[in-house]
């Protein structure tokens, strides 16, 4: 993928916060030549329908990702540890965002 040549500039990953206080969520990616234009392109591409109040853009090459081949050793040990899930508690009435 990194060998693919194009003239559209750097690849950026876009994260949108839909409401103040909520986490930023990955919305997608885009091409732009620099950070100012990346923010503007993110605004025009991903927030046209009122999706967000704040944007992060990150150069895609700055994101360090886990290797899909390591999936077993990284994630499988969690499969049989049911006590790590907070399912043994009674949910308080009226609690939101849990």
């Amino acid at each position: 993928m990194s060998n693919a040549k194009d003239n559209q500039g750097t690849l950026w990953e876009v994260f949108i916060q839909s409401k103040s206080g909520l986490p930023y969520k990955h919305a997608g990616s885009l091409h732009a030549s620099d950070k100012e234009l990346a923010i503007q392109a993110a605004r025009d591409t991903y927030t046209r329908r009122n999706e967000g109040t704040s944007i992060w853009v990150v150069p895609a090459e700055c994101i360090v990702a886990s290797n899909p081949n390591d999936q077993e050793e990284l994630f499988d040990p969690m499969n049989d540890k049911v006590y790590r899930h907070p399912t043994f508690y009674v949910m308080p009435e009226g609690a939101k965002h849990i």
Partner: peptide, 11 residues
């Protein structure tokens, strides 16, 4: 010239 700019000009 760019997909992103296509959307921007449309906006």
């Amino acid at each position: 010239p760019l997909l992103e700019e296509d959307l921007a000009l449309g906006n």
